[in-house]
Design a protein around this nucleic acid. Structure first.
Length: 424
RNA sequence: GGAGAAAUGGCAGAGUGGUCGAAUGCGGCAGUCUUGAAAACUGUUGAGGGUCACACCUCCGGGGGUUCGAAUCCCUCUUUCUCCGCCA
């Protein structure tokens, strides 16, 4: 969420930069400024009332001590009246503050100045491309056919147990999946990310902290038969980032680098057609995530570092990929800048998104109250970043499709030590 | 699941109705001393709101209550610890 003080001081700039998202925020921004003014006015009134009430309470204490009970009793009435006043003011203040917060929740992050204009994914800007697209044999097939023939991923079985979008990985398919997870985690920890295992259900405060709530309420599975209700995580980002909620880090604690492997659960309502075939879109999938908490001056350098890291993994896997800089219209609610990685699937003849690296700047940390103590000893909001390294199903799809041969699927060399076999 | 105890600033730990945003110690920061460091000494050191800056307000696990006044009393929830039971 954007900082009110920033909005107040940079009204025109905020409106102008949000236009990059194809939204006219002027009305919202002006409402924020008005609500904030009203809020502060009420706060002052309340403070003054409480100050008076405090003074009287002290006086009464002194009067009792000096034995002037009757005078003290006279003052009590006034104190009671002030208390009543303060309650009324407090109610008004809370309502106003809530209204302001709700409005702020609806305003997305300000795009980074490099974010290109545009409405849809067609307007995303390709910034990098690497790797050879393999020439497949004549009988090459998409992964959903291959995995069925080889009996390594069973969609129908998952459908029986749970429903569509919850596949069962079997035999070498399961092993390959596990190999990828181990390989990703090893790469990430070698690069300095600390491995953590986190809960797969989170409370409401965590959902708000990273910005999934209230924006993506409908996208998350929600367990409501427990009190308080819990959400199944749509990404490891949510629990991992919330590790830092309400923290004040020292300069020496920055940067923080985490990596975590988690399943991810997404409702994905309204999806249909070829986009969602096979592994392309699931309700449950695995992902290894990398996450950083950075000094604001370092965050874009860190962003580049994360991009290079993901590149390195894809190079090792020898998968052809490209990097897109998301346009304003495609940029996620909380992100200031996002680069998507896409692997080319030869058999499907299309690009599959396998990673998304974002800098949220202070958007998440403002909600999280994640701060650090700067050189002047003042608290200041950190920048948060995260990215997938990587999302499993589409990497799996990319490997299965691009590495297919007439007599089975070759395993990428770097994975063989993890799988223990070189062909499926 | 049962019984008991507890939750205070970065940490430890005082504080049972007004003089408490809170003793003291440790840690942190700054200074003195030193060639430099350590030690010692001196000062300083929670967060948020508000203000040009002060003033002022809020916060002692969360929420609610009693009172003119709550860290302190009451209710409730959560968490932690000890003992017992059960269990992957």
């Amino acid at each position: 969420m954007l900082q009110v003080a920033f909005i107040r001081e940079h009204r025109d700039e905020v409106i102008e930069r949000l236009q990059q998202r194809n939204m006219d925020a002027s009305q919202m921004i002006d409402n924020v400024i008005t609500l904030d003014e009203q809020r502060r006015k009420l706060q002052t009134q309340l403070d003054n009332t409480l100050a008076e009430s405090n003074t009287i309470a002290k006086e009464i204490g002194n009067l009792y001590k000096s034995g002037k009970a009757s005078e003290a009793n006279a003052l009590k009435e006034k104190g009671a009246q002030l208390k009543e006043d303060s309650k009324g003011l407090e109610d008004q203040l809370n309502r106003k503050a809530e209204e302001l917060t709700e409005l702020l929740y609806q305003i997305p992050n300000i795009p980074h100045h490099t974010v290109p204009a545009g409405n849809t994914d067609e307007d995303n800007e390709e910034v990098f491309k690497e790797g050879d697209i393999p020439k497949l044999h004549a009988n090459a097939k998409p992964h959903w056919e291959l995995v069925k023939e080889l009996d390594i991923i069973d969609f129908e079985l998952g459908n029986k147990i749970t429903g569509a979008g919850f596949p069962v990985y079997k035999g070498k398919g399961a092993k390959l999946q596990r190999a990828l997870i181990a390989y990703f985690l090893d790469k990430n920890t070698a690069a300095g990310y600390n491995e953590v295992q986190v809960p797969h259900l989170v409370n409401e405060a965590s959902g708000f902290g990273t910005g999934q709530l209230p924006d993506k309420e409908g996208q998350m599975y929600h367990a409501t038969n427990v009190e308080p209700s819990l959400y199944l995580i749509p990404t490891g980002e949510v629990p991992a980032t919330n590790i830092y909620r309400d923290d004040i880090l020292s300069l020496s604690q920055l940067p923080q680098q985490l990596t975590t492997y988690t399943p991810c659960f997404r409702v994905e309502a309204g999806s249909y057609g070829a986009d969602v075939r096979g592994l392309n879109r699931l309700h449950q999938f695995d992902k290894v995530e990398i996450l950083r908490v950075e000094h604001p001056e370092q965050s874009y350098k860190a962003f580049e570092g994360m991009i290079e890291h993901v590149k390195d993994i894809l190079r090792e896997l020898k998968l052809p990929y490209r990097i897109l800089r998301l346009c304003g219209g495609d940029l996620g609610f909380a992100a200031a800048l996002t680069y998507d990685f896409e692997v080319f699937s030869t058999a499907q003849d299309r690009w599959l998104e396998i990673s998304s690296v974002s800098n949220f700047e202070t958007f998440q940390s403002n909600r999280l109250k994640l701060r650090f103590r700067n050189q002047d000893g003042k608290t200041q909001l950190c920048h948060t970043l995260n990215g997938s390294s990587l999302a499993l199903p589409r990497v799996l799809a990319g490997i299965i499709e691009n590495y297919q041969t007439e007599d089975g699927i070759q395993i990428p060399e770097v994975l063989i030590p993890y799988t223990g076999f070189d062909k499926i």
